[in-house]
């Protein structure tokens, strides 16, 4: 197992390099650089502007620029924001923490919903319960997340007033109060994200349970006299959960994509919101940094799902 995990982590590095190259190329394709805003400034002459470009290494060949950029990124330096005139890293740090809160909460909800729903509809397939659950997943597939989130915000935020309609925490709180306020603020956006994001896993789990039910080793278990509930808990569920670990990475990516809309709609100060804002004002260093971080998160999600697989599945564990 250790060999597998180590090898898997080693494989991650080329993925990261590839990601950084793509992000770098995208950044290069974007119009303008740090000096563009200076061009508007009557106090800066074109010669001075050129001097700054030279000092910042923007006239170096692309590969040197790339290496410089990677070097700073590794140290957490993503350059300066055009609009906020602060280092991108300072701008992002706070937002990232908020986004991680939201992401983790959404993931917890996704599996709190998906496991029981998938297992129930798989075990009792073609019953009324299964039809209801499957119906819900179809709605989940069909409904656009941003409209669904708006409806949630309207009903539970504005109409019923059960949840706050913006922000990530009430100001001036510390300790336990700070924590509960945080959770209170992210409940509605996380739930909106999870209710839509979970349907893939529900359907996956359902079909996995239905397939495992027909395997011969289930007949072996029944032939041993294993009572039906135990046939499910000991044999069917564990074997069905295995592929769910495999789609964990996919689930993480979906949630990242979804969080961009949801943070915007709930005015939740996370990276997604910052991302959209920065695109609107063409603050490219920030956009680049966020794309890079989202990419890293997706890669880490895939890594995590492979590691979980290797722990649960003896066919990978013992080689």
């Amino acid at each position: 197992m250790w060999k597998f995990i180590v090898r898997r982590i080693i494989i991650m590095f080329p993925q990261l390099v590839l990601l950084s190259m793509i992000v770098f190329i995208l950044a290069q394709l974007m119009p303008g650089d740090v000096t563009s805003s200076l061009a508007m400034d009557p106090n800066v002459s074109p010669e001075q502007q050129e001097q700054i470009r030279e000092d910042l290494g923007l006239n170096e060949p692309w590969h040197t620029q790339y290496l410089n950029w990677v070097g700073s990124v590794v140290q957490g330096d993503f350059g300066h924001s055009f609009t906020h005139s602060v280092p991108v890293s300072d701008l992002i740090w706070h937002r990232m923490v908020n986004s991680i809160w939201l992401g983790v909460a959404a993931l917890i909800f996704v599996y709190m919903l998906a496991l029981p729903l998938g297992l129930i509809s798989g075990r009792w397939n073609d019953t009324i319960a299964d039809r209801l659950i499957t119906g819900y997943t179809y709605i989940g597939f069909a409904a656009p997340l941003f409209i669904f989130a708006l409806v949630m915000l309207f009903i539970f935020g504005f109409q019923l007033g059960w949840f706050p309609t913006g922000g990530s925490v009430d100001p001036g709180l510390t300790g336990w109060d700070f924590f509960t306020s945080k959770v209170y603020h992210l409940l509605l956006p996380a739930l909106s994200l999870a209710l839509i994001g979970t349907v893939t896993t529900v359907q996956y789990l359902r079909s996995e349970v239905i397939e495992t039910k027909q395997k011969e080793f289930i007949s072996t278990a029944r032939a041993k006299g294993v009572p039906e509930p135990k046939v499910y808990t000991n044999h069917i569920f564990r074997n069905s959960l295995l592929p769910i670990a495999a789609v964990f990475g996919y689930e993480v990516t979906t949630l990242i994509g979804g969080s961009i809309f949801v943070e915007q709609i709930f005015s939740y100060p996370g990276m997604g919101q910052l991302f959209l804002e920065s695109i609107q004002v063409r603050d490219f260093p920030v956009v680049t940094a966020i794309v890079m971080l989202f990419g890293v998160a997706a890669i880490l999600g895939a890594l995590l799902s492979d590691i979980i697989m290797s722990i649960v599945d003896p066919r990978i564990r013992i080689k």
Binding site: K215, E216, T220, A223, G225, H235, N239, L242, V312, D313
Partner: peptide, 17 residues
């Protein structure tokens, strides 16, 4: 207990996990 069964495919008749 009183009756046992042996299946055709030994590959799939055992729980892999």
């Amino acid at each position: 207990k009183d009756m046992g069964m042996i299946f055709q495919e030994p590959l799939t008749a055992l729980n892999p996990l």
